[in-house]
Computed example of a mutant assay.
Amino acid sequence: MKKSSSTRASQLALALAATGLMASNSALAQSGEVNVICSAQAAWCSMIAVTFEKSQGVKVNMTMKGSGEAIAQILAEKANPKTDVWFGGTGDPHLQAAEQNLTLEYKSPTLPKLHDWAQQQAKQSGYKTVGIYSGPLGFGYNTELLAKKKLAIPKTWNDLLKPEYKGEIQSANPSSSGTAYTMIATLVQLMGEDQAYEYLKKLHKNISTYTRSGTGPIKAVARGETSVSISFVHDGPGEKAQGFPIETITPADGTGAEIGSMSIVKGSRNLTAAKQFYEWALTPSAQALGAATLQFQLPSHKETKVDPRVPDFKKIKLINYDYAKYGQTAERKRLIQRWEKEVNSLPQ
């Protein structure tokens, strides 16, 4: 059952109170603005914008785009930047933006309080991005549809190639989605490149739709539009909490994980407000807003309270994902072009 607008309003008020971010009336006067591209889930993006405005007195002009579309926009606006901060989305495109000198070097004083993986993300980018959350790649599945169609729960990557899954799987398109690019990079590292593309060709036969956004497939699973998705598994519990018949699983043969990141755009017109937003977004109280909007990634600040619905990384077989290599612009472009040429061009 979906939440009513009054429920969402109550949820927002509770989150604001719980995180200690309620501002006094005098602080509510607007003092500046910040333009943010948000590549996280829409509810989380909205909560961030409203909470930051109310607590910090800075107007937030927010647009929501997948990470692939976000970096394309920032690149297109390089000569005349209109964005100040890019929040969320998979870390690889943030590393590519850093490599292309699209983002600003900024070493936050909060860095020592972040998990090692978040600090490493900052270090390897030359401090032009920072990790704000992490989440593993896996499968979402609709329990009712699998039971109705007598389909087994997929437990490995190879399970997705079974003929009974033909037309039952959705994945995102790597040209627009960081989630899908993470899938390709994960498979390349897990299987070897040539074998990974042979796998993707076989998987293509079972894919019903390649969505534009990375969250599209798991939302389709939750709503009974498809049986299985290739998704970040932290997106599943939020759908389940709304009453949808969905569960998630990570492949037993190994998987990768994203490091969702945040970057300040080079040439920001509102740099003071951008840094203010950046620092605020790294606080435990701000990071707790993810779980408040049913987003269950692992927060990067060590002191942020972790919701029990966040995936337990200790129970997941994770590969040693090479974020530096697969965050390179040339590598991303090459792998996606190969996918377009060898996989997406095939009939289904």
Rank of each mutant, 00 (worst) to 15 (best):
Y165D: 01
K155R: 12
T186W: 03
L151T: 04
R332T: 10
I169W: 05
K317M: 06
S345T: 12
V233Y: 02
I48D: 10
V60N: 03
V233R: 03
Q276W: 02
V130P: 08
S67Q: 05
V34C: 10
P136V: 00
M1E: 14
A29R: 14
K59E: 11
A152F: 04
N320F: 02
G256V: 09
W44K: 10
T179E: 10
G260Y: 07
D116L: 10
K202A: 12
D312I: 00
K205R: 15
K315P: 04
L114E: 09
S229V: 00
G236N: 14
L104D: 06
H204Y: 05
D194R: 09
A147M: 01
G167H: 06
P109R: 06
P174R: 09
M22R: 13
G66I: 10
K325M: 07
I48K: 10
S175I: 11
D159L: 01
P81Y: 05
G20L: 02
S176D: 09
K325W: 08
G138W: 04
Y321E: 11
S10V: 15
E193G: 04
K155G: 09
E69K: 12
G126E: 07
I207M: 08
F313H: 08
I336Q: 00
A29I: 12
T90M: 11
A29E: 15
E331R: 15
I316P: 06
K202P: 05
I153N: 09
L203Y: 00
S176H: 09
S285T: 09
T226A: 08
K219G: 11
I264D: 07
K150T: 11
V221N: 07
S134V: 05
V343C: 03
A185M: 02
D92E: 15
E331C: 05
K113L: 11
L75P: 09
T226I: 11
D92N: 15
A9S: 15
A220K: 12
V130Q: 08
E198K: 14
A274T: 01
H234G: 04
N35R: 14
Q41E: 13
L346V: 06
S24Q: 13
F139L: 03
T63S: 14
Q195W: 01
E225Q: 14
D116Q: 14
T156I: 00
K59Y: 10
Q120W: 06
R334A: 12
A13P: 07
S6M: 15
S10Y: 13
G260F: 01
N320S: 15
E144H: 11
P154I: 00
S285C: 03
K205D: 12
L318V: 08
L102R: 02
V306Q: 03
A274Y: 02
T110I: 15
T19L: 02
